Simulated scan of single mutants.
Amino acid sequence: MDAVLITAVALLWGAAFALLLPRAAYRLAVAPGEPWRRACPAGHPLPAGAAGWVGRTPCPRCRRTRTPGLRAVVAALACALACGALAAATGPRPELAVWLLLAPVAALLGSVDRAVRRLPDQLTLPLAAAAPLLLGAAALVPGHRGSWATALLGGLALGAGYFVLFLFNPGGLGFGDVKLALPLGCALGWYGWPVLFAGAFAGFLLGALYGLGLMVLRRARRKAAIPFGPFMIAGAFAGLLAGGLTA
Rank of each mutant, 00 (worst) to 15 (best):
V4E: 05
A89G: 09
F168Q: 07
V9K: 00
G235N: 08
L11S: 06
V178P: 05
F228K: 04
D113H: 03
F204L: 14
W36S: 14
A24P: 09
R38F: 00
A139G: 15
A225T: 13
R114I: 00
L173G: 06
V116N: 00
A89F: 05
G171L: 12
I233N: 07
A39K: 03
A138G: 06
A16I: 13
P142C: 05
P68M: 09
P35D: 12
L153D: 03
F197R: 02
A76G: 15
A202V: 14
V74G: 02
L182M: 12
G155E: 11
P47Q: 07
A198P: 04
A8E: 05
K179F: 08
H144W: 08
F201E: 08
F231W: 14
G207E: 07
A31H: 12
P41K: 10
L5F: 14
C62I: 10
R63C: 04
L125S: 00
P104S: 07
K223F: 10
P41D: 03
P94L: 04
V98Q: 05
L245N: 01
R63T: 13
A224L: 03
V105P: 00
A89S: 11
A16M: 11
T150M: 14
A78W: 06
P32V: 13
P126D: 02
G14Y: 09
A10I: 06
A181T: 09
L133G: 05
G161L: 09
L108E: 05
G33Q: 10
A106W: 15
D177S: 08
A3M: 12
H144T: 15
A131S: 08
L205Y: 06
A242S: 05
A202I: 13
P94T: 08
V116A: 01
P227L: 11
V116Y: 01
G55P: 10
V9S: 04
K179E: 09
A137Q: 04
R218F: 12
R221M: 01
G146T: 01
A24K: 01
L217F: 12
G192N: 08
